[in-house]
Nucleic acid binder design. Sequence first.
DNA 1: CAGTTAAATAACCAAATGGTAAAATAAATT
DNA 2: AATTTATTTTACCATTTGGTTATTTAACTG
Lengths: 115, 115
Amino acid sequence: MPADQLSSTFAALSDPTRRAILASLTTGEKTVSDLAEPFEMTMPAITKHLKVLEKANLVERSRKAQYRPCKLQPEPLKAIDEWMDQYRRFFEESFDRLDDYLKQIQAKEKDDDNS
Amino acid sequence: MPADQLSSTFAALSDPTRRAILASLTTGEKTVSDLAEPFEMTMPAITKHLKVLEKANLVERSRKAQYRPCKLQPEPLKAIDEWMDQYRRFFEESFDRLDDYLKQIQAKEKDDDNS
DNA sequence: CAGTTAAATAACCAAATGGTAAAATAAATT
DNA sequence: AATTTATTTTACCATTTGGTTATTTAACTG
């Protein structure tokens, strides 16, 4: 049963270890051992977490000698951000910011036209 | 083992039924039967999903006669939106929009001062 | 009070999740 | 060729998850 993209993204983000891995990748590519180092967890556990992130397309892996560097892949986060759009009016209470938000939407539509 | 707030929010959002329930609540309070109606699922299943949403503080419940109306509680979504801040620069590729975003941050800080 | 409607609980089940230890694989080094 | 380093795979385990049916609880209605 192949879960939809949004579901697997949210599922991947629902674990603090995986969120920490993502955060660690914001400063650049890392090896599996690099990523594992801060955690009190065996390597296979980290490998599994990476597989979840990879299946959710949040991490891309390459190969360099015996290393398997991991790189952040932010597209699914963008999708979540867009999903969030339908809820922003519920938590962006300020009219000023609602205004900002509408302007942003307009800017985005204009942007899409150009691409 | 009490999962942190962010983890339970993401976990709650990782199911399409629960996301549909939330979306349904954007148009106002609903009873459990109202919420269950679009799904090919028994009531207990919906009750369970509601319990997950409630524990994640995404839904608040009240009481009206034999009904238990559900209301959207958007605070946890705001928390996700703020968590996302650290990743926006990775997917908001346009400099224009990055600029918009920075202005938004400034507006927000100003806003926080006033509150 | 008897019956109906709304919802929750209990008991159960299969599959997924998050971890482990031990073994296997891949590439570099000696 | 043997050894070391980096990582993955396998086999296993306990817990959680998402669903079911059957039973209860709660409140209204005739």
